[in-house]
């Protein structure tokens, strides 16, 4: 179980409408990521689904049951918060058992489920510690444990990795993905980090100002961004967006080319520019190229990905050649031209 359907859901705080009418269908077992810049309403949307905020209008259905008016506890969803929201005065065991205790399960049953969850999450040795004595990653796992024991219809994650350091974040990302593979439960995951979205999701929902800009699989979004916003948001480093005369040559208002689909050369190419900062990552080098005359955004800069061995000094002249097959074209409304 774990179908969630939102139809014409809106949310206003006072006079400000943060979510304009929105429809969304989440199927059982999917890993759905809500992604967007801060303030785009992705957390609000998650809280609406969780029931922590009331919808202003519209309907939320969970497993074909109208859940719009249901209190959070009755929706059968479990949430992992950004701050983990562990209960600091309770041991890990009691934290994980809390939802079971509230549900009135008997003690033996509670213990059995807590032990099982702890085993899945490698927490067995820490069951009698307090959250304050655990590391960030362990706290994160306790929070997930507290969600698992309820056997919810869907898990909701609200930026769960943003408080972890970079190395741990990669590890936890894998663990959550593994968990999803094992449990096959619907998961809804909110993040502002498009890398997390791309790596974890079955389906990405890109949000801007409460509007859904595009829904699709990670590769769909990468290869066929529906509009300029999605094109600029998905992909790292960002897609180079070019407008003006160069775009007009391709019968478009704007054209976009990803850094990895540009070829850099010291001798010849289509566009000429001057090398700015080079970022050496070892495997790749990202070169910021200036003065291309392409009128790229406001700072007239194109990013190109080249081989890690590429030797380019600040101020050198460089030639760029786009891969025409991978060129994205957008019309004057910012929509993709196919």
């Amino acid at each position: 179980m774990g179908n969630i359907t939102l139809s014409k859901v809106t949310k206003s705080f006072g006079d400000v409408q943060v979510i304009p009418p929105l429809d969304l269908d989440i199927r059982e077992g999917e890993f759905v990521v809500f992604v967007g810049p801060s303030g785009c309403g992705k957390s609000t949307l998650l809280r609406l689904i969780a029931g922590l905020e009331d919808v202003t209008s519209g309907e939320i259905r969970i497993d074909d049951r109208n859940a719009t008016e249901l209190p959070p506890a009755k929706r059968g969803l479990a949430m992992v918060f950004q701050s983990y929201a562990l209960y600091p005065h309770m041991s890990v065991r009691k934290n994980i058992a809390f939802p079971l205790r509230m549900a009135g399960l008997d003690k033996a049953e509670q213990d059995r489920k807590v032990e099982a969850a702890a085993k899945v999450l490698n927490l067995t040795d820490y069951l009698d510690r307090r959250p304050g004595q655990l590391s960030g990653g362990q706290r994160q796992r306790v929070a997930i444990g507290r969600a698992i024991v309820r056997e919810p219809a869907a898990f909701l994650f609200d930026e769960p990795l943003s408080n972890l350091d970079a190395a741990l974040r990669v590890g936890m990302r894998l663990e959550i993905s593994e968990l999803h593979e094992r449990l096959k439960t619907t998961m809804i995951y909110v993040t502002h980090d498009q890398v997390e979205a791309m790596t974890m999701a079955d389906k990405i929902v890109v949000l801007r100002a409460g509007n859904i800009e595009q829904v699709g699989s990670p590769l769909e979004l990468y290869h066929k961004p529906r509009n300029l916003f999605v094109a600029g948001f998905i992909g790292s480093p960002k897609m180079n967006l070019i407008s003006g005369a160069e775009a007009a040559k391709h019968d478009a208002k704007h054209i976009g080319i990803r850094p990895e689909h540009l070829k850099a050369s010291k001798e010849s190419g289509v566009w000429k520019g001057r090398v700015g900062v080079s970022e050496h990552l070892g495997s790749d080098t990202f070169i910021h190229v200036h003065d291309t005359g392409l009128a790229v955004g406001e700072e007239d800069m194109v990013t190109v990905r080249c081989d890690g061995e590429m030797d380019a000094r600040h101020g050198d002249t460089i030639w760029l050649t786009p891969d025409m097959e991978r060129l994205h074209r957008f019309d004057d409304k910012g929509l993709r031209i196919t």
Binding site: P71, M79, A85, Y87, M102
Partner: peptide
Amino acid sequence: DSEQLEAAEMDGAGFFSKFFFIMLP
């Protein structure tokens, strides 16, 4: 932390449970 109260709410705690298990400690 309001997230703690929200977490308790999602875990099925009513007002009195929230008061005795979260607020009072």
